[in-house]
Design a protein around this nucleic acid. Sequence first.
RNA 1: GUCCCCUUCGUCUAGUGGCCCAGGACACUGGGUUUUCAUCCCAGCAACAGGGGUUCGACUCCCCUAGGGGACGCCA
Length: 502
Amino acid sequence: MTIRTRVAPSPTGLPHLGTAYVALFNRAFAHQQNGKFVLRMEDTDVGRSDSESDQAIQDALRWLGLDWDEGPDVGGPHGPYRCSERLSIYHELIAELVAIGGAFYCFCTKERLDSVRANQRQQGLVPKYDGHCISLSKQEIQTRIDKGTPHVIRLKVPIEGNCVFHDTLRGAIEIPWGQVDMQVLLKSDQFPTYHFAASVDDHLMEISHIFRGEEWLSSCPKHQLIYTYFGWQQPELIHLPLLRNPDHSKISKRKQSTSINYYRRCGYLPDALVNYLATMGFSMPDEREIFSFQEFQDAFTPSRVSTSGPVFDIAKLSWLNGQYIRNLSHSDFQKSLGEWAFGDGRADAILRLVQERTERFDDVFAQADYLLGERATLTAESFNHKKITSDECVRVLYFSQLLLEHLNQRDGELISEAFKKLAAQLDLKLRDCLFPVFVAISGRSVSLPLFDSMQILGLDVVNARLRSAIHVLGGVSKKMSKRLDTEWHQHATRLINTTKTE
RNA sequence: GUCCCCUUCGUCUAGUGGCCCAGGACACUGGGUUUUCAUCCCAGCAACAGGGGUUCGACUCCCCUAGGGGACGCCA
């Protein structure tokens, strides 16, 4: 049997550390076994998927050296490798599944489902589909379809008994069918859900082993059911532990940077990041902690993967990165640093801002310090200001995060317009409103133009600096963030929409 | 709330019944080398969640409790 593995990210948002983590294991295992490693883009969510993210994920994985044998760009015998290009396959198979009684049409409205689930929750039951449409007759179904009633197709799930499936690291796992929802497989927009697309594609692409995050454990029964209905053999499942925040919750961008690009921008070496990721949940037989991907691949075996969730510890990553940096030849060091600091048009962008503010060359580097490296360390006093209180600073910084995130734009003009409106909404002068942002981004209240700086730094770093600034000011409690989120939603429509039309 | 998964130093981990009054690494503390700093070297600090079994013997096997995490979407 040929070993075939895959990683199947959804192209929504920035390239995630978790994607790299999972790709690492899949790639190492496949190549160790002379198999193939596949990249498949799971763009089943039309609203959230975008091609920019698709490209960014590919770039980030390539940067890490985690490239693939088959995928959307390189092709392969089992293509296409993007869900949105495989719709006819799903439609054909979902029809088959309905025909053999494994799935059924459902015409329920969102409102009805919401109230059903709310009721169930109130009674302490598992919120799930109540089977309302499961026994509609062929005629009833046809009539509604002909009328153009929006509908989905759901998985038929047994009511009683247990589902038993196998995980390589944990052995047999038993989940009562009563816990499993009649999952939507085909959405009303005719796109499959992840569950259906992934199951189908894994089979069609002859995937033999799936290394994926532990978060998928509870959806295994659904996938198993699909395989059973079709009479397919399920791939071997190896659920990896979830990367964690320092507080042990699942790693999330609210609490630390999860974007691969952030670590790239901060000057971590791809080999070091890959090495570090490989020590999360895996250890070498000889306990070595510094090793190449090739060495990892040679030594890898599922039995050396541990099941408890590792905290992603930036201090240790930095130490490891230091080992790699010092090991570089001096010429490689120069080359890599130069590329990091000035590559991709950065030198030009920075120098254009600097020149008009320069009297002597020795002014140059002091002005651009926060663009070339980490900004000065902040304290609460850094935010002392005549016109704006520290609480207001937190508010502004918090909203800035949301604004930039929702704007999802690098365009300086747009950012500038949005901030002007934000200041107006908060009833602050732009100059005062921007003060905490200047401090957060540059470490000073006076610096090179703010929005240009943001563009040069990139969203990942900007976000991290805003987050760290908020932290310095005492952070935002759960309660407070709830209040701010509510307030934000009141501003949001106006801020975002009007911004885009101008 | 229901179900599932997990539980060795603050963190990453070694350990698959005796080699362990638990080893390594990061962080931290102290010392040494170095014109300073960093590197490097040495030393120190620090853990088997708790309770029951099984066994001649449990970090290792079983059960319970507690704690942590995840899932419960026409998100993935």
